[in-house]
Every structure is written in C-alpha cells, then in structure tokens.
Design a protein around this nucleic acid. Structure first.
Length: 264
DNA sequence: ATGGTTGGTAGCCAA
C-alpha cells in the first residue's frame, strides 16, 4: 500500500498537476495540505473520477487538509482535539480496514509559527505541537497501524537544510520546535524517510524565491511518522522530486511510503 | 543583499 503526503499549495490552482500525478503515481492514500479551499469548492469530481474517495477539512483562503483514498473510509475525524477555540483547519484523520487490522492515517498541517517575535504565532505553533503529542499518545495506546503524515513545518536537524545557518531565527528551526518534534517521535514513532536514508540534501520544500529549486536550497519539513504497528509493515520511503520541475509546481514535493498492507 | 515568488483574495496576508 502506497501512502503519500503532499503540501499542494492550493488545490484549485494545482488540480491539473494533481490529477496528472495521481495517474502516474497511483497512490492508495494521499494526504494533502494547504488546499486553500472551502469544502464546497474542492475539486472533488475530478479526483473521484480517478477512483478516489475524498474527505476534506477546508477553510477559506488558508490552510485546509484532505485525504484521498482508494480504500473506503470507515471513519473520518476533523480537527485536532484539545482547543475548542482553534478554528484553523489543519488536521483530518481517516480510518481504513486492512488485512492486518485498522489503519489510521492523519493529514496534518502544523502551524508555521513565523515570525517568532509575534505574540500569537509561535506560541500557537508550540501549543499545537503539545496538543498533537497528547493526541498521539492516546492513539498509540490503541496499538494500531497509525501514520501521521503532513507538513510539520519542522526542520528536525541541521542536515535537513541546505543552509541551516539561514534558518536560525526561523520558527521551523527553533530549539523548542525541534525539541517538541523529538518528544513526539520519542513516544514511539519511526520517522519513515530517516529510517530509509541518512543522506544529507534530502529536501521536500524549495522556496519559489531566489531560484531556491535551481540551487537546491531546500529544507526537509514534510514527514511521515509511523506507529510501531505501521513500522512493522514499513518498506521504504521516497521523494517524488520530479513534480517540483513541472509547470506551476507546488513548492513542496510528495513524500511516499510503502506499507505491506492491503485493503480488507 | 531584508531582495525574491506564489495563491487566495480583494486590502494585503500567509508562506
């Protein structure tokens, strides 16, 4: 089973890109972030025509996440628990049936948090990470295959940036940010891409500005965390970097994992 | 080098 996370940076601006990629990559489950669309305007018909079930958690203008799946959804949950006042659409969970029991897949878009001096934005990021850790801890107790996939807006280590020195003042690379990500992982998750390779220069995002893609000035901020039950079925992770060179690309590329699971 | 680019939206904001 092929599961992918991709920050698409505007699903309506990228629908041709998305359907073409779905055709060539043929993923089973796709976690999208930054759909920048309300649910009513999500281009679901084009995607359903390719054989996918579509569940969205949209918002006007910004944010928004979705899960596309060839498997039928047994259950869908929208929003990260822990703060009823949080109206930002950054979290959706789907549950599926496989030949090895339940599979839970989350598409998450973790807050950016910049600028760090802002009285709201960076604290919101850290609070969101605390909520995620609490939620993940509860889900791990279920002892099911769980995949937390998304744009974490976290550069875990200096080797995850081409120029780490340029990110020292950035919310994506703050010590508190990195520590919160480590705390989450250390609950018992396997980080799929780093379980596959420890090579440097493995990036998932290149800014549109200043020729970042051409210079390979990237960062690795899109991650898939696997529960022990998912890690036991894990094959390998890979990047679909070629889509970054397409016309009108997203600034992120798809990150793909293979799990030895089949739809039940 | 405090630049540069993009999407969504309608003024700039978020990234």
């Amino acid at each position: 089973m092929k599961i992918v996370t991709w920050n698409i940076n505007g699903v309506r601006a990228r629908i041709g890109n998305l359907t073409h990629w779905l055709g060539e990559s043929a993923p089973d489950i796709v976690c999208l972030q930054e759909i920048k669309s309300v649910d009513e305007q999500f281009p679901r018909a084009e995607i359903e025509a390719l054989g996918y079930n579509v569940e969205t958690h949209g918002q006007k203008g910004f944010n928004g996440v979705a899960i596309l799946s060839k498997l039928r959804f047994d259950e869908v949950n929208r929003g990260l628990p822990g703060d009823d006042a949080d109206e930002q659409a950054r979290f959706i969970e789907g549950v599926f049936s496989t030949d090895h029991g339940a599979l839970r897949v989350v598409s998450l878009y973790l807050p950016n948090g910049n600028p760090i001096e802002d009285p709201v934005k960076f604290p919101y990021k850290l609070a969101w990470m605390e909520r995620l850790e609490r939620w993940a801890s509860e889900r791990l107790a279920l002892e099911e295959a769980l995949v937390l996939a998304g744009d974490y807006n976290v550069i875990p280590e200096p080797t995850d940036a081409r120029h780490p020195e340029n990110w020292l003042g950035d919310a994506l690379f703050q010590p508190q940010t990195r520590q919160a990500f480590r705390r989450l992982k250390n609950l018992g998750f396997t980080e799929a891409l780093r379980a596959t390779t420890d090579a440097p220069d493995v990036y998932t995002f290149w800014d549109y500005q200043a020729g970042a893609w051409q210079k390979n000035n990237g960062i690795r901020i899109d991650h898939l965390l696997l529960s022990p039950e998912a890690a036991n079925r894990f094959g390998s992770a890979s990047l679909e970097k070629h889509v970054r060179a397409w016309e009108k690309p997203s600034d992120h590329v798809p990150v793909t994992i293979d799990l030895r699971l089949e739809a039940a």
